[in-house]
């Protein structure tokens, strides 16, 4: 036992050194060798990542990008559910090979992990009961729900300092708090809110009661997350998504999930996947 204790103590002291070095391998080679790509995705954030109740399969925009990348690498895709709060540790500790989890690129995050080029562009807005919020002023001093560890949480604290921020493990719980009147608004990226609103519209009990007012507080470019310094892997992923743009597959995916007559109507506008540096500079 004494030895075990010593081991734990030594581990605590040495955690630093071992942390990076053990993990800074070549993921691309690794993935090919084991024949599976393990991706961290959201499991209840349609249209990006969710489990289809009938087939029990993962579906969504993020999920399809991973499937495309896995296909390109010639391996099977496997999915591991992550939340906004635990996704970065999951990646850094090597539990997943890549993150496709509605993650905004930021300079702070870019110091910890590497991002792909922007594969989705959106902005942070609010989901509210119809007519309750017309401008940021209406939110002052009120409770606003969001998810732990998200950029949404950090942005809204800056945009409405007087608000009381309630952070949940993930967005649907915040939406539930909104339905029950525990918060006046839920804030995050419009694309996620659109998915939640779509769900609310489908339910007769909440149909027509919620909206996303035109109040934007930031631009949110999404990137696929990979471990820092994993150069080969990052390049492979970037090449793959650029190719998807060129072949029209990326646009097709967008239309599949965000079509104007679908559950989550959104406009792609002028956005294209390019070798950009949005968010990280």
């Amino acid at each position: 036992m004494a030895r075990k204790t010593a081991l734990v103590i030594a581990a605590a002291a040495l955690v630093a050194a071992m942390f990076g070095s053990a993990l800074a391998a070549d993921t691309l080679a690794d993935v090919k060798k084991k024949g599976v790509l393990v991706a961290g995705v959201k499991d209840s954030t349609p249209p990006f990542g969710s489990v289809d109740p009938n087939t029990k399969e993962y579906v969504g925009y993020d999920v399809d990008f991973i499937r495309a990348i896995a296909k390109k690498a010639g391996v099977k895709a496997e999915f591991q559910p992550v939340t906004s709060a635990n996704r970065m540790p999951m990646l850094q500790e090597g539990r997943v090979d890549i993150l496709a989890a509605t993650m905004t690129k930021t300079p702070e995050r870019a110091k910890q992990i590497d991002f792909s080029y922007t594969y989705f562009l959106t902005g942070q807005k609010f989901l509210t009961k119809v007519g309750t919020v017309k401008s940021l002023k209406d939110l002052e001093g009120k409770a606003i729900g969001t998810a732990k560890g998200s950029t949404s949480e950090q942005n809204v604290a800056k945009a409405v300092p007087s608000a009381k921020i309630l952070s949940f493990d993930d967005y649907p719980q915040a939406v539930l708090a909104l339905i029950q009147g525990k918060v006046i608004a839920v804030t995050t990226d419009e694309s996620i809110l659109a998915g939640q609103l779509g769900k609310l519209e489908k339910n007769p009990a909440s149909k027509g009661k919620f909206e996303i007012p035109d109040v934007q507080i930031s631009e949110e470019p999404y990137g696929l997350g990979m471990r820092k310094g994993d150069t080969n892997w990052v390049k492979f992923v970037n090449d793959t998504i650029l190719e998807m743009e060129k072949s029209g597959e990326a646009k097709k995916l967008f239309d599949k999930y965000f079509a104007p007559d679908g559950d989550n109507p959104m406009k792609r506008g002028t956005f294209k996947i390019t070798a950009d540096e949005r968010g990280i500079k």
């Binding site: 630093a16 709060a85 540790p89 910890q112 729900g145 949940f168």
Partner: peptide, 22 residues
């Protein structure tokens, strides 16, 4: 888990803002 900002919540907040989990 329900958004009460007690000690564990704050420790995790500090982790997600600074990446200094240890």
């Amino acid at each position: 888990t329900i958004g009460v900002a007690e000690l564990m919540y704050q420790a995790r907040q500090v982790e997600s803002y600074t990446f200094k989990g240890f």
